[in-house]
Design a binder for these strands. Structure first.
Lengths: 219, 219
DNA sequence: AGGCTAGTGACAGCGACTGACACATGACAA
DNA sequence: TTGTCATGTGTCAGTCGCTGTCACTAGCCT
């Protein structure tokens, strides 16, 4: 509610506000640092709070849960993608619009993240998410919530009602499925860079159509 | 490890064994009953244990977590589906094999479930899962684990290596995505019957191909 | 019959999270 | 500048999911 808006509308945030920002950033960085260093489950909220020098209660005033801290940066990327999608020209077929939106948003998301935390930290966090059952579960649930929102955007583009025509949800679900496979393969590989996941995603989106119509014998 | 195997190999389960079975079944039914009656989050493990007349500690000896109890029946359905998939003739294209396997397995899963808990309870539980964030998250994670296993089955059928060729994972992910959309729409509707979800799934699987190639104007 | 073992209850403890209350410190008006 | 007030914070107590430990008891096996 008052993240970036306030910064822009208010000329000087005031001392109180700045202190809050600093505390929240410190908590976030401490949390992500600990998560990637010793694992999500093995870091307690008390440790995060102590690393920043505040009480555990204060941590929970900034983040509704330990989980929320882990996905704070991911939320940035999501809204980044949504914005890119909404800017696609209306004439584009749905799947193509989705494809262009991800690839485009990955072109610029790096800088936005870097303002919050070191990019490399975010990348390493991805591996932690993928390998921590509780986080992976949360990630998937968040992904389906995002998909619901995307489906509505697609439906509007095509002048359809999400509840009457299943096709918007279907394309978006397929798109999301391809993204999940991509994330999985990417995070398991060696090259954990934005360029690498971009390339993988493009390749997978190219293959998903042909893969559906078996048979595969003709390679 | 000793669920169905033991029952079949041993002629008489012995008094000790039967008592265990009864306790586990009682715990399961009490849990599902309470989950559907007053919601998952609002039922404590203590309540479940007390309803059966055992200690909380005993509940955790039968179920690794409160969550596990909620998905106990779902696991049955999963292995049922996997069995059906493995029986599909090798010549069938992947997506068709998957389609036939779900539809077939839904033809017979009802009876298998009824032996454990009332079928209607299981159906109502589905709505609880879909509307409880923590359970939905767990469900999605379990689903992707299942998908990984399915991908391996498909890969073997086609003589491919899952790690070298992304196509098995891609088809399976698309299939899983369609199933998720189906579950979602089904659990939100009025007709929560096996027949209804069967029909929905078939319809969605028919539509997913055409939906990918935009445009949809020529509906 | 008697020793062995597996299932259980009781208890203590950890970690995520919440509510209540009291205090202190910036914000703002007089 | 000062006094009031709102707001961020620490402390404390408590709930709930979950785990380790230990002693006990009831089935099992010879």
């Amino acid at each position: 509610m008052d993240t970036l808006e306030t910064v822009r509308t208010a000329p000087r945030p005031g001392l109180r506000e700045r202190k809050k920002q600093r505390t929240r950033d410190a908590l976030l960085r401490a949390a992500l640092g600990l998560f990637t260093a010793k694992g999500y489950e093995r870091t307690t909220v008390d440790e995060i709070a102590e690393a920043v020098g505040v009480s555990q209660r204060t941590f929970f005033r900034y983040f509704a849960s330990k989980e929320e801290a882990a996905f704070f940066v991911a939320r940035l990327a999501e809204s980044h993608f949504l914005a890119a999608l909404r800017e696609r020209p209306p004439g584009e077929p749905p799947l193509q619009a989705l494809r262009r939106a991800v690839l485009d948003s990955w072109d610029t998301i790096g800088e936005a993240i870097e303002q919050l935390v070191p990019l490399e930290l975010h990348m390493r966090l991805y591996r932690v998410i993928e390998s921590t059952p509780a986080l992976l579960a949360a990630h998937l649930r968040r992904a389906t919530e995002l998909e619901e929102e995307i489906a509505r955007v697609i439906a509007r583009r095509e002048g359809l009602d999400v509840d009457a025509d299943p096709r918007p949800r279907l394309v978006v679900a397929v798109f999301g499925a391809v993204m999940r496979v991509t994330e999985r393969i990417w995070s398991a590989g060696d090259d954990v860079s934005l360029a690498a996941i971009r390339e993988l995603a493009a390749s997978h989106l190219d293959q998903v159509g042909p893969a559906l119509v078996g048979n595969w014998r003709g390679k």
